[in-house]
Simulated scan of single mutants.
Amino acid sequence: MYLANKKINIVSNNKSVSKETERILKRKLEKSDFIVTENFEPNADLIICIGGDGSFLRTLHKYNFPDIPIIGINTGHLGFFQDLSPRELDEFIFKYKKGDYRIDEISPVEGLICTGNSCNEILGINEIVIKGFKSRTIHLNLSLAEDFLEKFSGDGILISTPTGSTAYNYSLGGSIVDPRLNLLQITPIAPINTIAYRSFTSSIIVPEHATIKIFPEYTYENSVLIVTDGTEHRYNETVEVQVRLSELKIKLLRFKEYNFWNKVKEKFL
């Protein structure tokens, strides 16, 4: 399989090492007969994101979770999403031209935030977090579909995808989940567990078709803070939040030797 003359979008953050990597990569791709677009092309064949994990997530959000395979080059710190380093550009081009790769699909998490007069949809690759505004204790009634689960009290709850299980979820003590599993993980953030308030203190795993419903109770104000992949949104008079796995698929370009658990050991152990 020979993939020359294919369009490639390159997206980079503003760090000098990223811009230099972008310049070198563009020259190498064009020398190999690829077309590197000046502006983001929704009909391109590949997105290459240069930066760290934050840049990778911002790229997907900025371009509305495009139906184009994406791969990352790490010029940041952890680089869990990024599969390449700047020194692997030639190897990447060689393998890509031969078609020596696979496409892994992951599902974002989808939230529907309903206020008194409207509903707003949000998506997250890693997670959706429901918190109290100004870090106040929040009280949330949780249900799985129509089955009441608990009245949570604490700083908030995080609902993560398997892909996001190694991010904020992991720092809260949640489980690392193999991304080949389709499920959602509910992880409490500083739960209160006393005579007055009883909350789960560990993660809850729910199946892929589950709908998680959250009904806030208000004491001091009538707003909640929704955080998706690190970006905050404040919604006033929120009456219900529904969270489920999205039917949308994000396509990650992987080399055939990619192994999730090897990456976990490399980055965390």
Rank of each mutant, 00 (worst) to 15 (best):
N126W: 05
P42R: 11
P191L: 03
I93S: 14
Y101D: 12
M1C: 07
F40C: 00
S202G: 01
D83A: 12
Y170S: 09
A44T: 12
G164K: 03
R136D: 12
K97M: 13
E110F: 14
T163A: 13
L123T: 08
I186Y: 03
E237T: 14
K151H: 15
Y96S: 14
I73L: 01
I93P: 13
N259F: 00
G51E: 11
Y168V: 04
N193V: 08
L123C: 02
I71P: 01
T75E: 07
G154M: 08
H209G: 01
L142I: 15
Y218V: 02
N39Y: 15
Y96T: 11
I214C: 01
T163C: 01
A190Q: 06
S18G: 04
D67I: 05
P207E: 10
I250Q: 02
C114Q: 15
N222H: 04
I24S: 08
L123S: 05
V206Q: 02
F92P: 05
I8A: 02
K98T: 01
E146V: 09
W261A: 12
G156C: 02
I48K: 10
V11F: 12
C119Q: 04
C114T: 12
E121R: 15
S12R: 06
I71S: 09
I214M: 04
N222D: 06
V224D: 05
L3D: 07
S171T: 14
F133V: 14
K263Y: 09
I106G: 02
L142M: 11
S223V: 08
S32I: 04
S171N: 10
P207F: 01
G230A: 06
E41S: 15
K28Y: 05
L149E: 01
W261Q: 09
P216L: 03
D45Y: 07
E121M: 12
I195H: 10
S160V: 00
N43E: 13
E247Y: 11
L144T: 09
E232H: 11
I138A: 10
G230V: 11
T59W: 06
E232I: 02
L78M: 06
S118P: 01
Y220E: 10
A145V: 00
S153V: 12
T21E: 05
F133T: 14
G54D: 02
S135L: 04
D104P: 12
G51Y: 11
I47K: 02
V241Q: 12
Y101T: 13
E41K: 03
E150M: 08
R87G: 03
S143F: 10
I47N: 15
Q242L: 11
E266D: 14
S202K: 14
F268Q: 02
